[in-house]
Write a protein that binds this DNA or RNA. Structure first.
Lengths: 232, 232
DNA sequence: GGCAAACGTGACGAAATTGACACAGTCAAA
DNA sequence: TTTGACTGTGTCAATTTCGTCACGTTTGCC
């Protein structure tokens, strides 16, 4: 649902957070190098950043200030983690616009709650989630697919699969990619599952099913424009 | 210009806060007796409540729970002040839906900043107290639901749940989302609670219960317009 | 054309999801 | 303290959805 950027050099902490986020159905991205925080935030546009101030050899507050200074990231909420419990630092953080502030050691649960609280607020300003592709209109927010204006019923898995294909239409999606995106598999599994779902999807799309094109030996692709309808 | 309710028995603290608020151009209202918190909040509809949990002879958490339970005050952000620094209490507060939490002794400055932060956020949300959706009319202020013009009695939880669904109607609400929005859980707990309440809600809505649509594998959705009641 | 690999298809059992319900715990009012 | 309303949890069954398998078909290549 939401995408979170975690900037934290201690892998056990970031993994803990990541685990929780996964369970909550969120996307996340971990980086350990504070210098990458800004570029990563710019590129991935997360909904929330969890920033550890105590990165080795770096002034975390500096990073934070840059995040706030850059227009592409100013509006992204930031939760700051730090070992410094001094009040002055807290103030500095909040004053600069951090959305929340936790001092180590903190209860993971409390962090989750604060993350949730912030996402809850942010979520209300949801992005427009409609993808238009030719005869198709995919409404992520409502989880609806419209083909030529009329709605089609898809299961959750089918919807995820189609969304993934349509988000980057015209690009070839590897089998491994799709398995990872839709099923969350990290490993490559030899399975016909993907094929089955592709098939069911095509079935439901009816005549428009041929927009899902097989790239033999590689994967699948969504083509908005079909090259040659006329094979005659 | 916002209105803040301060519930605090130590007059030096409340005066300090009040002074700051005045300088910032806000209205405020101080009460020392926790029992008056709810009635005062109902009457004055403040934009924010600062609640000291350590009121003499009263369980502050109790007061907080009542504030949350009453629909006329559920949506008012609360900052909790307390001397109890125990993590469990913090969690209890946040879990119940407090917007922020400060433990004494705190820097007044920090409190101001948090107050400002919350007011800034709240201000963006224009409060509409009536939601009209087809046959439904939901009156948040009085916690009443009208179906085809006649009132239905809903419990607090049911009301919150329905409100959440109706506020963003037609959008799919994840189970996790709903648990967060309505219950404040940050949890991954497998529970039938949500289902149970959905069921009770549908029951009370009677024939109109089918406006609450199950999205299998994902969550629920409020549909103002039902697709095809009878395709015959 | 023949071959092997990759892909499509249909069917079936397993797993997940959810609605219904009973029951126990909690809280506020009497 | 008792009562009654409300809420949360566990179980069960019905249903949907999923993943796997076996087998047929297509594709690329010689």
């Amino acid at each position: 649902m939401s995408k979170i950027l975690i900037v934290e050099d201690e892998s056990d902490i970031s993994e803990l957070i990541a685990l929780h986020l996964t369970r909550e159905g969120h996307d996340y991205l971990c980086i350990a190098n504070g210098l990458q925080a800004l570029p990563a935030a710019v590129e991935h546009q997360p909904d929330l950043i969890v920033l550890d101030l105590m990165l080795p050899g770096l002034d975390g507050m500096q990073i934070f200030r840059r995040l706030r200074a850059d227009t592409r990231t100013t509006n992204i909420p930031v939760i700051i983690l730090t070992a410094k419990a001094q009040v002055t630092d807290k103030i500095a953080g909040l004053e600069l616009g951090a959305d929340d502030y936790l001092t180590k050691p903190f209860s993971p649960r409390e962090l989750y709650l604060r993350i949730s609280a912030i996402l809850r607020r942010v979520k209300k300003v949801t992005h427009v989630s409609e993808i238009h592709r030719g005869r198709f209109m995919l409404d992520r927010k409502n989880m609806k697919l419209f083909l030529d204006g009329s709605p089609l019923d898809l299961t959750t898995t089918e919807f995820k699969l189609l969304t993934t294909l349509m988000e980057n239409d015209a690009t070839v999606h590897t089998r491994a990619d799709l398995l990872r995106e839709v099923w969350g598999y990290s490993t490559e599994v030899a399975t016909r599952t993907l094929d089955t779902h592709i098939k069911r999807l095509r079935e439901k799309l009816g005549s428009a099913g041929n927009h899902i094109v097989t790239i033999r030996g590689t994967g699948f692709q969504f083509q908005t424009e079909l090259p040659e309808a006329i094979a005659a």
